[in-house]
């Protein structure tokens, strides 16, 4: 668990972070979002003390971060940055094994851990272990970056725009992988991004920052439905907000039992998002869809009125 209490950071006269308080629960993925220069990266770095806070308290598992030895603290916290920060003169395997070696793990244990992580992140050992970072694609390099951050099995992971430099397709697949990884590992993750779609797709909780202050925090749905001001609303996509909400909801949540009416031709999977359902309707010129399960068996139906959330369907 990470807790920030009235934390302020000044650079000279400039106040980068202004008395923010924030609590990140164990196993939660918390996204800090906001425009450039809003203090989100600074906030992240104050947690592993790459930047020392000026005032207030930063707590980690109930202890102030200042009580820890800097290096001990950082070795307990995974850290991933946009440019990957991989050491260009080290092989992939050596890069991943960095923190375990700093922690003086026995050699065999480091090797086993590196192998395990490479498998976990879909980097076949025989193909990648001996490669140098410049021989990797952007997506592969960032996978190595994540593997390196996870190497010593830290409880906490700090990610500073980790997918910001990737092309949209690679970015999306890495986002999916991260979500999948998180559902298995349950790390406490603080994730900085300015890509709102990324934040909505990944975060359990969003923290919107502006000019060094927290403007609003809550679950993605809470923010989408009830933005506290115009700034948050526009950050969340203005009029697109509704569409973004459809990506957070599943067909299964809105479908109705099968009615005696003729089953529509167009179909959609139960676990698809409402956005996907909407896309099928648009493409098929249909206002009703059959909802199917994994075996392609109809389990319900979804009308446009239900999809958009109208209380009653006729």
């Amino acid at each position: 668990m990470i807790e920030l209490i009235e934390v302020t950071k000044r650079f000279g006269r400039e106040t980068a972070v202004d008395a923010i308080s924030l609590r990140i629960e164990r196993g939660e993925l918390c996204a800090l979002v906001g425009t450039s220069g809003c203090g989100k990266s600074t906030t992240l770095r104050m947690i592993n003390r790459l930047i020392e806070h000026s005032e207030g308290e930063v707590h980690l598992e109930g202890r102030q971060v200042r009580e820890f030895d800097e290096q001990v603290l950082r070795r307990r916290i995974g850290y991933v940055i946009q440019s990957t920060g991989l050491f260009p003169h080290w092989t992939v395997a050596r890069n991943i094994g960095l923190v375990p070696r700093l922690l003086k793990w026995p050699r065999a244990k480091v090797e086993a851990r590196v192998e395990e992580l490479m498998t976990l992140l879909g980097l076949p050992q025989e193909q990648f272990a001996g490669k140098y970072p410049h021989q990797l694609s952007g997506g592969q390099a960032q996978r190595v970056g994540v593997a390196r951050a996870l190497a010593a099995d830290p409880d906490i992971l700090l990610m500073d725009e980790p997918f910001g430099a990737l092309d949209p397709i690679t970015r999306e697949s890495l986002q999916l992988e991260l979500r999948d990884l998180q559902s298995r590992l349950h790390k406490t993750i603080v994730f900085v991004t300015h890509d709102m779609d990324e934040a909505l797709a990944l975060a359990d909780r969003l923290v919107v920052m502006r000019a060094g202050r927290i403007v609003q925090q809550g679950t993605p749905l809470e923010l989408l439905r009830d933005p506290v001001d115009d700034f948050v609303a526009s950050l969340l996509g203005g009029n697109d907000r509704g569409l973004k909400e459809t990506t957070l909801l599943r067909v299964g949540e809105r479908m109705q039992p099968l009615s005696p009416r003729l089953l529509p031709q167009a179909r959609v999977h139960r676990d698809a998002t409402l956005r996907q359902a909407l896309a099928v309707m648009f493409r098929e010129h249909a206002d009703r869809l059959a909802v199917v399960d994994d075996d392609d068996m109809a389990v319900g139906e979804l009308s446009l009125r239900r999809l958009v959330g109208a209380r009653r369907d006729e």
Binding site: E70, R75, Y79, S83, G85, F87, P88, L102, R148
Partner: peptide
């Protein structure tokens, strides 16, 4: 590359380790 140095520090390398193992090589 400042990114490399920042991540070296962020991983918990000491000043000496950053210099001898990263910056100098």
């Amino acid at each position: 590359d400042p990114g490399v140095l920042e991540s070296a520090r962020g991983m918990g390398m000491s000043r000496g380790q950053v210099f001898w193992q990263v910056r100098l090589p």
